[in-house]
């Protein structure tokens, strides 16, 4: 039965069904064993609140993703600069952002820095702070990808007469892009989940809405299971999309 071990769509389909059925059965057995009492009717009235939280999470995530890619690129480029103050600033920022908890960055960033600057827009400030935090991780992913482009490629680029900016534009970034994709996707998935922490500065995103819903009904899983599904509804398509991108830019070196 070697075809069952093949990559044909039929084999993949059959195995997917078998695995999903197995995991569902295991989950059902677990819930049955703890005799969990479901209260779905109590949470149903909160459906619009749930959707508004989900949309908030989506909006924050999308904004922070775009911003974090820009931050990541700038921190990576700054960290490779030959100009010492720029390099020190970029590497220092990267280390600080990666080395301190997002919770602390959000609290200080919103209640101290944004307050001092008289900015009273929790959504905007939260999105930017999240973008900075994830951008520092992306900077290191980008740095790894850029540094993995070999010396012979850089020399070839110099030899055909490319200037330094041209070398990055035509040789290094196109090749580094492909290598940075898997790590970047993982980081963006993390970003979506990390957006839940924005509740500490008063943003009612998805997790906060679910907390309110659970508190109002003395429920737990009736909120948290839809919560997990709502996150998967975003993170799975993102992962698949990244895979197709990887395939499109695939080439052997």
């Amino acid at each position: 039965m070697t075809w069952l071990n093949s990559r044909s769509p039929l084999a993949l389909g059959i195995w997917s069904i078998v695995l999903i059925a197995g995991v569902s059965a295991a989950l059902y057995a677990t819930f049955a064993a703890v005799q969990y009492r479901w209260n779905w009717s109590g949470v149903w009235p909160y459906r619009y609140q749930f959707i508004s939280g989900w949309l908030t999470t989506l909006g924050i995530s999308l904004g922070a993703m775009l911003f974090s890619v820009i931050v990541g690129f700038l921190l990576m480029a700054g960290g490779r600069s030959s100009w010492t103050p720029v390099r020190l600033f970029a590497t220092g920022m990267t280390a600080f952002l990666r080395g301190t908890p997002l919770l602390v960055q959000l609290l200080i960033g919103y209640y101290v820095i944004a307050n001092a600057l008289r900015i009273n827009e929790p959504l905007l400030v939260g999105t930017l702070l999240l973008g900075f935090f994830e951008g520092a991780y992306l900077a290191e992913i980008f740095r790894g990808a850029v540094e993995s482009i070999g010396a012979s490629q850089r020399e070839s680029a110099r030899a055909v007469g490319f200037s330094v900016p041209q070398t990055y534009r035509y040789v290094i970034i196109p090749q580094a892009f492909r290598r940075a994709l898997p790590g970047t996707t993982g980081q963006l998935v993390s970003l979506i989940k990390d957006s839940s922490l924005l509740s500490v500065i008063g943003i009612e995103e998805l997790v906060q809405k679910v907390r309110i819903l659970n508190a109002g009904n003395y429920t737990a899983l009736e909120g948290y299971i839809p919560l997990a599904i709502a996150y998967l509804a975003v993170t799975l398509p993102l992962t698949w999309w990244a895979r197709t991108l990887e395939r499109r830019f695939a080439y052997e070196t």
Binding site: S152, S156, A159, V160, Q166, R178, Y251, T253
Partner: peptide, 28 residues
Amino acid sequence: NGFVFQGYNLFPHLTALENIALPLRSVH
């Protein structure tokens, strides 16, 4: 000048044609 090295000269993400045409456009 024109250079040719031992190996791994070409840009792997570009076709043979683009490897030649890109420097002609962007450098020359």
